[in-house]
């Protein structure tokens, strides 16, 4: 039990993903809005990919945050049960 209760502290991966896409989203959106040249947009078939991908990543980050808040990581006792196989029938 003691070794497993630590696992409750295992960070929530969804927030890490949100962090990455949040940072990428902000940087790309700013780059796209202010610093992407007409020539670069031309190169990408007329799409301002920095701006649109940036906005898309901000939305993705928001979805992960909402998910993580709505369904937080479960309490340690359940982890311990299943890790020991106690939660399974037949063990």
């Amino acid at each position: 039990m003691t070794s497993h209760s630590k696992k409750a502290g295992l960070f929530d991966l969804r927030l890490i993903i949100a962090l990455l896409f949040g940072v990428y989203g902000v940087v790309l959106t700013i780059t796209g809005a202010g610093f992407t040249t007409a020539e670069e947009i031309q190169k990408a078939a007329g799409i301002n990919v920095n701006l649109w991908a940036g906005l898309g990543m901000l939305v993705t980050a928001a979805i992960f945050v909402v998910w993580a808040k709505a369904r937080p990581v479960v309490v340690p006792s359940e982890f311990a049960d299943d890790a020991d196989g106690v939660g399974e029938p037949g063990h």
Binding site: Y24, V27, L28, T31, G32, F35, T36, T37, E40, I41, K43, A44, A45, V49, N50, A53
Partner: peptide, 11 residues
């Protein structure tokens, strides 16, 4: 090389 601008290229 042909399509991506700096910025998204990093991603």
């Amino acid at each position: 090389r042909d399509l991506l601008p700096n910025g998204f290229l990093g991603v």
